[in-house]
């Protein structure tokens, strides 16, 4: 493991016609960090994340993910990252095991690797008895935990989580974060967007986007001190108040 940042972005922009969705953002994410990527709806978070995942080409600027250029090496990046979207990303009409097998196949895992990791995942989630249950019949919280585990199946260097805990009850959110901590303990870097400001407190560092630009970046404790407030929620609201774009 090197000391180079796993994600490094310089002056990255994305325009749709006249509209500047992402306006010259720059930041680094170190290996093993939990990087919180915050911002109101429409601030440009998702667009920025899509560029880092190789789903969308940047209009200008540069960046690397896991050592590969986001402009030219999108396909190689895709092999090294995991991704879980805010919308549920597994197939309801397939069983837990069939979903695991599908994603294992997509990432080219051998049958033996797949079985070994499936057992690990099912044990960790205490899902063994549910292996042949259709995913559609599981409670939302379970689905989200499973989706996260499936995104981690090929042991990516960095995992992108787009509002993974939306609509999930507090207990399950807590369990979800335990999974995130376990992944970080195993050496994975976590890049997460969220609307819950208590979750922002769990991050190693956070950035806050307003109107396509990064307005604040740092360790949560430092940011609170800088804005002279008690919680991340207040930091966020102070910054978001100045937003010109909404929804």
């Amino acid at each position: 493991m090197s000391n180079d940042p796993i994600i490094s972005v310089r002056e990255l922009s994305k325009c749709f016609g006249d509209f500047i969705a992402v306006d010259r953002i720059s930041f680094d994410v170190a290996r093993g960090e939990i990087f919180g990527f915050l911002g109101a709806n429409g601030a440009g978070k998702t667009t920025a994340m899509r560029m880092l995942c190789g789903l969308s080409y940047p209009s200008s600027g540069s960046g690397t993910v896991a050592g590969f250029d986001v402009m030219r090496e999108g396909e190689r990046i895709k092999r090294r990252i995991g991704y879980m979207s805010q919308r549920f990303s597994l197939y309801d009409d397939l069983t837990v095991m069939e979903n695991i097998r599908l994603y294992a196949g997509i990432y080219g895992l051998t049958r033996r690797q797949m079985l070994r990791r499936a057992v690990t995942v099912l044990d960790r989630l205490q899902f063994r008895s549910e292996a042949d249950t259709l995913v559609g019949g599981l409670p939302l919280g379970w689905k989200q935990k499973l989706a996260f585990s499936v995104a981690m199946l090929h042991q990516p260097e960095v995992v992108f989580l787009d509002e993974p805990t939306g609509g999930v009850d507090p207990v399950t959110r807590r369990q979800f974060w335990e999974l995130i901590y376990e992944a970080v303990a195993d050496g994975t870097t976590v890049f997460i967007t969220t609307h819950y400001m208590d979750e922002a407190e769990y991050c190693s560092r956070v950035s806050i986007m307003v109107d396509g630009q990064i307005r604040a970046l740092g360790v949560p404790a430092d940011l609170k001190r800088q804005f002279a407030v008690q919680t991340m929620d207040e930091v966020f609201r102070t910054l978001a108040r100045g937003a010109k774009r909404s929804e």
């Binding site: 092999r79 991704y83 979207s85 990303s89």
Partner: peptide, 12 residues
């Protein structure tokens, strides 16, 4: 359903 996005992020 959003599964297409996940497939597009994959190397396939």
């Amino acid at each position: 359903t959003g599964t297409m996005e996940v497939l597009l992020v994959s190397p396939v």
